[in-house]
Every structure is written in C-alpha cells, then in structure tokens.
Design a protein around this nucleic acid. Sequence first.
DNA 1: ATGAAACATGAGTCAATGTTCAAGTTCGGC
DNA 2: GCCGAACTTGAACATTGACTCATGTTTCAT
Lengths: 227, 227
Amino acid sequence: MAGDGEISTGASPETQTGTQAENAKAPKTERGRRTLRKLLDAAALEFGERGFHDASIAGVTSRAGLSIGTFYVYFDSKEAIFRALVADMGRLTRGWIGDRIKGAPDRLTAERVGVTAYIEFVREHKNLHRIITEAHSVAPDAYRAYYETFAEAYRRNLEEAAARGEISDGDHEERAWALIGIGSFLGWRYAIWSDDVDIAEIGAAAGDLIENGLAPRPPFAPRKAKS
Amino acid sequence: MAGDGEISTGASPETQTGTQAENAKAPKTERGRRTLRKLLDAAALEFGERGFHDASIAGVTSRAGLSIGTFYVYFDSKEAIFRALVADMGRLTRGWIGDRIKGAPDRLTAERVGVTAYIEFVREHKNLHRIITEAHSVAPDAYRAYYETFAEAYRRNLEEAAARGEISDGDHEERAWALIGIGSFLGWRYAIWSDDVDIAEIGAAAGDLIENGLAPRPPFAPRKAKS
DNA sequence: ATGAAACATGAGTCAATGTTCAAGTTCGGC
DNA sequence: GCCGAACTTGAACATTGACTCATGTTTCAT
C-alpha cells in the first residue's frame, strides 16, 4: 500500500477545501470558505460516528455550530456532502502516504514503508476509513474515483520500478489493485477491529509477503538478483 | 483467495435455510421453511439491486409474492433479515470455493485456483459481493463474522501448508487477511466494475504475486526449493 | 373430523428527517 | 459610512417507509 510519491492526479493546485467542481456552490468569501470547512469537518465526525444512514443533516450542522439552512447553501443534499467528503479525504490520504514514502530508496522499500504508513494512517483516522468503505454503497462513483486515482498512481510507480529492475515484470494494474486490497483489509483488521498489534510487525509481515510471496525459500539460493 | 477445503466452522449440520439461532423466529412447518427461503431469496435480489438503504420491506415481500405482515412473522426488522442474508451467503461462498479447491495438490496451487474461483464466483453472484460489502456499515458484526470465519479457516490452511513445507514460514493470520483483501479488491475491480478481462489471466497474475511477490527474479537461480 | 397452533394478510400508524423558503444579519469594496 | 452581495437562520413542510395488529386461512396431530 504505497501508491504515491507526488500524486497530484492531473489536478490543479488543490485548495484547502477542495477543487471547485465537486460541489456546485463554491463560497466566494473567506467567511464562506471557513463555513464550508466547518461543515466538512463536522460531516467527517457525524458520518464517521453514525454512518451515512444514521447521520443527519441536523447532526452535521449542530456539530458545526450552524443552522440547517446554511447547509443547503453549500450542498445540494446529504449525498452531495458525502461525496465531497470522500474527495476531501482522498487528498488527505494521498498526502499522508506520499509524505512517508518520499524518501524510500526503491520500490520494495516503499512498499514496506507504505503498508506500515497506511495502517498507521487508518489508526489515526479510523472514521476516514469507515467513510470511504461506506462510500462503496452510498456513492459508488466517488468510491471508485478514490481508488482509481490511487490505483493509477500505484500502477505507474510499479511500472517505473519494473523498468528500473527493482521489481519483477508482470501485470502492474492488477498488482496495484491487489496491493490496495491488502492495505485495505489489513487496515480493517489491525487498525479498526483491533489496534494493539505492533505496527512494525504488521508492516514487516506484509512487506515480506509483497516482496517474496508465499513460496518456500530455497535455503541455498540468494533472494535478490543484483547486489 | 481460497480459504477452505472442508469448512464447517464448528457448526452442526446446516439446514438449507440456515442455523436456527440467527433469526429468532424459526419456522416449524415445511410451509414455513419454504416461505422463509422465499423471503431470503427475494431479499438477496432487493438488497443487491437497490442497496440496504433504498431497499424496502415491501419490495422484498412483493418479490417473494407475500404480504408485508408475513415478513414480520419471520424477521424482527429490516436489519435482521439483512444479517440473516449475510450469514446465508457466507455458507454459499464457502461451499463454492471449497468445492473448487478441493482437488488442489498443494497450497500454492490452491491459491491460484482459489483466486480464479473467487473472481468467477463474484462474477456470477455480483449481488452477493455487493451485499457483503454493504454489511460493512449496515451490520458490522455480521460482516466481521463473515470474514473472520473465512480468515480463520484460511489461517489454518496456511499453517498446515507451512508445516508441510509447501509455503514459507510467516505470520499466517496476517497473510490470511492480506490474501482475502486481494481477492476482495480484485473481485470489485475485475468482476463487478468490469468483467471483460480474462479470468485465467487475472488468476495467473494474482497467483504469481501471491507465490513470488514483487521481488526481481534471479535469472539464474531456480524458483522452487524442491522438485 | 376438529381444534389449536402455525401461518398469512395489508391498511393504517407514526416517527424520523431531508429539504424549502421568506426573512434577517454580516461583510467587504468603494 | 453605505449598499448590495454573500451569508445565516430555523420553523414548517412533505415524504417515506418501517412496523403493528386485528382478523382470516391453512396445516396437522390426535
């Protein structure tokens, strides 16, 4: 799980509150921008704690210290803010992981660091992972966009790494999805359902699986080609 | 993705409609059992097509050719039937995959076959995969139970395989979750979002990743220990 | 045959909440 | 300091759909 590096997904400078296009009603003043941010932050809490279905607009606005009416100045519907939230969180996730793997000397290291960073991220943003997962059924297109952005960057990175000989050849798109799947499920298991297992251990085990697979290790042959 | 073999999960002979405990109101006559099955089948369609939120009890009962009142003879709530459905589908999935990997000579083969079988399964039961995923937020405990049953069997199989020297040593529980994650995400990507990629290809690529990881292949050294 | 338990019915109840709107308040450029 | 645009308000509306219940029908053990 380490899709990035310098992902910017073809998008222009992302504002603090997100790209204009995703919510029809962009604020025009500083005050408006602050309000929008308050709504998104409140929504992250509300949706994260209660889930899309049980969450209410009233819950969001009261957390934000605003009135219900204000909500509809910024978003067309409950679903709209949910979508915006997913996109907002995509930026957050990419930023976090990108930062941590920036210094990795090669892809295999990046993968090790990446899984660890991802679990760590989920532990510190449990709600985020919950929300993204829920987007699966609430806003499938937003969910897809979230992971496709990820997968695409991942694929590119794998391809480049393969070209440099750091990893073996293969179908990199598929590998990207498989690796994302690993991260996502380990996130649930070891960050949300229980978070007492040592992160480094998880990272090491996952990193090893990603690097070497399950095949028995020839006790004699060296594991790497060059070095 | 190939958790089973002869999974029976410590449970006693499972009836066609499921273990008694999971829905408080077990039918006592043959007629009742048929009705219950009709409801579950109808619910699979309704929830699968419309999602938990948009699905309605009326939708379920009308698909089943029954009245709303009947529904509440068998289930206490919308959520209750959803849970029952998840459990019901767990049995189905385990059966399917177990059947396909039964003949595998060793674990690595089982893994290859397993991923392929899983994608195939999802392609033929798209609704099922959707429902399970939605259970993530609608009935987290049922969701967990579903995957924990899976992971537990998986872990056991991996451990036994390691003891036989078919795979390398390592943390098998974690590996189990990682492998499940691979299957789940590949299922979404290559069975639901698009299902035109050749299954054998996916299975081969995933199998290779699972077997050998990403590490570059020494062009000289043999890949397997014994043979 | 028969009665009681199991099963089936579906119009009506009811609470929840997403959304609207007409009226007020604040802000920022001139 | 002024004025229009931007923003805020929250009571009221409208819809929706889960769930109840009093009544009717079928089944089956005796």
